[in-house]
């Protein structure tokens, strides 16, 4: 989403080329599928019969074959990655090992630099003179 006071950026020439040989990869993890890509509709007249039509078709097939090899590669990798709980465990230990100036608690001593926004050490009752 781009919002610039109604001045929506003009789509680039590439964006406007709906038959640019790219197979759309847009689908949601929740099973949402977008409408078929113009190139995915074989036999619907997306490709004129001339040289350019052939050229585009060949380019689109090459692109699809690239995607096939990428997806096959990823399927092989996914067999070895393990369950998400392992990653969640790693995430929690990572988060809890790093001091965080914006949290209301700390494991280590407070860095003096954290409070420079209030002119040094301060107490909550003194806030008004800094705001």
């Amino acid at each position: 989403m781009i919002a610039m006071d109604g001045h929506q950026p003009q789509p680039s020439s590439e964006t406007l080329a709906s038959e640019n040989g790219r197979e759309s990869e847009d689908y949601g993890e929740e099973g949402r599928e977008k409408g078929p890509h113009p190139l995915a509709q074989a036999g619907t007249g997306s490709f004129p019969g001339g040289f350019i039509g052939k050229h585009r078709l060949q380019a689109a097939i090459t692109n699809l074959n690239n995607q096939i090899s990428i997806l096959q590669e990823e399927l092989e990798k996914v067999e070895t990655i393990g369950e998400s709980s392992t990653v969640c465990k790693d995430l929690i230990s990572s988060v809890e090992s790093i001091p965080d100036p914006l949290l209301p608690f700390t494991k280590s001593s407070v860095d003096a630099g954290w409070d420079r926004w209030f002119g040094g050490a301060h107490h909550s009752r003194n806030h008004k003179r800094w705001i």
Binding site: A42, G43, A60, L64, I68, L71, V78, G82, E83, S84
Partner: peptide, 30 residues
């Protein structure tokens, strides 16, 4: 060429579906 394109598209969609199912099976928790 159109037939090849159609077959390749089907293969891509099938692989995507398999990949998605495999990923979902590994999401034992958030």
């Amino acid at each position: 060429l159109k037939e090849r394109h159609s077959a390749a598209t089907d293969t891509v969609n099938n692989l995507r579906h398999r990949l998605k199912q495999k990923r979902l099976s590994l999401l034992d928790t958030d």
